[in-house]
Structures are given as structure tokens and as C-alpha cells.
């Protein structure tokens, strides 16, 4: 199972990870090695086997009472952010103006 440098770069983009050239090279080799190990799952016959998402039965839907409670204070919520303005998180524009 070989992963090319281009595939690694594509996955890094999907994961929003800026990687150096050296990292792309290294991960191509390492991820290929891990995938070669994982491929042994293809040996098993899993016809008619149901997938397990959670190994312990949760016992159906769990809902809490719909009762309003106090929210965290705004100044505390903002305290760990690097960039705040007028009581808000400041972020970059996500839409660009068309020319």
C-alpha cells in the first residue's frame, strides 16, 4: 500500500495542516507503512457482520430536561482568545469581494 507525496499533500489540505516538503516526504513513507499493516483486515470475511460504533449499549436516546441554565460569562469565554473585538471573537473574512 503506497501513498504518493501528492496524495499526502491532498490529505494534508483536507485536514487543514500546512506541512513542509520534508514532512510530506516523511509522512508518505510512514503512512504507507501503517496502511500496509492495516490491510490485513481485508483477510477477514465480514459478510453479515454488523458494525460496532460503540461497544457498550447506551440504552437508547438520552435526553435531558429542557431547562434554561446560566451560560458562561462573556468575558470568561473570550479570555483564551488571541484576537477579540467588541465582545466578539475576531476572525478573517470568509467571503472575498468580487472584482
Amino acid at each position: 500500500m503506497q501513498m504518493s507525496r501528492e496524495e499526502v499533500a491532498h490529505v494534508a489540505w483536507l485536514a487543514r495542516l500546512a506541512l513542509s516538503e520534508a514532512e510530506l516526504e516523511r509522512y508518505a513513507g510512514q503512512l504507507s507503512g501503517i496502511l500496509s499493516h492495516i490491510v490485513q483486515l481485508q483477510e477477514l470475511d465480514v459478510t453479515d457482520i454488523a458494525p460496532t460504533a460503540m461497544a457498550v449499549e447506551a440504552g437508547g436516546n438520552v435526553v435531558r430536561a429542557d431547562v434554561p441554565t446560566a451560560s458562561a460569562p462573556q468575558d470568561e469565554v473570550l479570555a483564551n482568545a488571541a484576537d477579540i473585538e467588541d465582545g466578539s471573537f475576531r476572525v478573517r473574512a470568509i467571503l472575498e469581494e468580487s472584482a
Binding site: 492495516i38 483486515l41 481485508q42 477477514l44 465480514v46 457482520i49 454488523a50 458494525p51 460496532t52 461497544a55
Partner: peptide, 13 residues
């Protein structure tokens, strides 16, 4: 990958 692994998880359980 993912769904197959979840099925093998059932076998392990």
C-alpha cells in the same frame, strides 16, 4: 477502511 474496521470491532467484541 472505517466501516470494515467497525465490523471487525464487532468480531473482537
Amino acid at each position: 477502511y472505517y466501516v470494515r474496521a467497525q465490523k471487525v470491532r464487532t468480531l473482537i467484541k
